[in-house]
Write a protein that binds this DNA or RNA. Structure first.
Lengths: 194, 194
DNA sequence: ACCTGAACACCGTTCAAGT
DNA sequence: ACCTGAACACCGTTCAAGT
């Protein structure tokens, strides 16, 4: 019987891995479980990933791209230009709370960043998306500062929200808090820029 | 030979655990390694902790208290009342970057929050410290909102700073960013409160 | 009460072997 | 190239036994 994955095993493993972390959390994620889920032997993954860390890095990079895409989509679907930055904050929170395992993996995965430049690239791409959005609201010299402040703030709301392990009911509350963060930071930046 | 720990084994295990996560990171932390470090057999810890998760919860709670204490100390040592909130932000960043493993453990440890109310208590105590600080700068009805915004923002800067795995040189930069976050949020809150 | 050693079912990783 | 089974040194947890 031809059980070979003919080169798409790598993709199949990533898919299986996302399924596993979604179901068992980041802690329950093991190479062997992923292989089991993909229907291959426990060391078939080594043909595509040098180590567990290598697979984790690939997952983190892919997750980060998914988060960026989700934010980008929300921005594009928002007709009012003035609302786009707030829409991006809402989408960021929404994605983080809906995919807590992926969010955790994206930012807390233990792997050597230098050995995986594609992760850093994905990170920069996300920052660029945000910078462009902010340039609309805050066309000043310190738009990089503004980007870092806004991203950090929205990110921190997501992190603390997840750290407290909130029930789903608090989702809207957190999304509103993220909007408030954007509004307050923009107001603060305007009042201090003179 | 009397190798008994006579009731202080619990404290000895916590100390050993902090040493282990500091040296090997959160990933390399295992019950057996902690026991080894404390000089006891690999299942002596079960006399004091029901499971690995239980020990992790105790460590996270203790870490959170240490972070709160570090911030409190920095605040008390700042003579100018107007500078205390900024000093707290700087201290928060400083502690996070100096103790990345503990910081990660404090906020990302996987354990049942409901089974460990002492963690939630420690969290609330930290929030209270911040609320009191903010009441000085921003004596308004929405001081709870202000607390959440400021904590989230400073926390997010620490998280993203660690996620990017910055070299030590960027420490000052991040502490300054945290101060900028506090200033900008306070300015924004003032301008929007009318 | 507090600690130990043996045992169980796992894990990541390596290696020799199969197509 | 791609996959497998056996083996190694680990891990968390349980259990019967020792003081």
């Amino acid at each position: 019987m031809d059980q070979y994955h003919h080169g798409n095993l790598r993709a199949a493993l990533l898919k299986a891995a996302f399924h596993v972390i979604g179901k068992m959390g980041v802690e329950g994620f093991t190479l062997r479980e992923v292989a089991r889920r993909a229907g291959v032997s426990h060391n078939a993954p080594y043909r595509h990933f040098q180590s567990r860390e290598d697979l984790v890095a690939a997952l983190a990079t892919e997750s980060l791209r998914q988060l960026t895409d989700a934010v980008r989509l929300a921005v594009e679907q928002e007709p009012k230009a003035a609302e786009r930055l707030r829409a991006s904050a809402r989408a960021y929170l929404h994605w983080a709370l809906k995919n807590p395992s992926r969010f955790q993996l994206t930012f807390h995965a233990a792997f050597d960043r230098q050995a995986h430049p594609e992760y850093v690239e994905a990170y920069m791409e996300s920052l660029t998306l945000l910078s462009n959005l902010i340039a609309i609201h805050h066309p000043a010299a310190d738009s990089e500062l503004a980007s870092e402040l806004i991203w950090s703030s929205v990110h921190g709301i997501a992190e603390l929200g997840l750290a407290r392990r909130l029930r789903d009911g608090a989702k809207d509350e957190l999304e509103q808090l993220a909007e408030a963060a954007v509004d307050t930071l923009l107001a603060g930046l305007r009042s201090r820029r003179r």
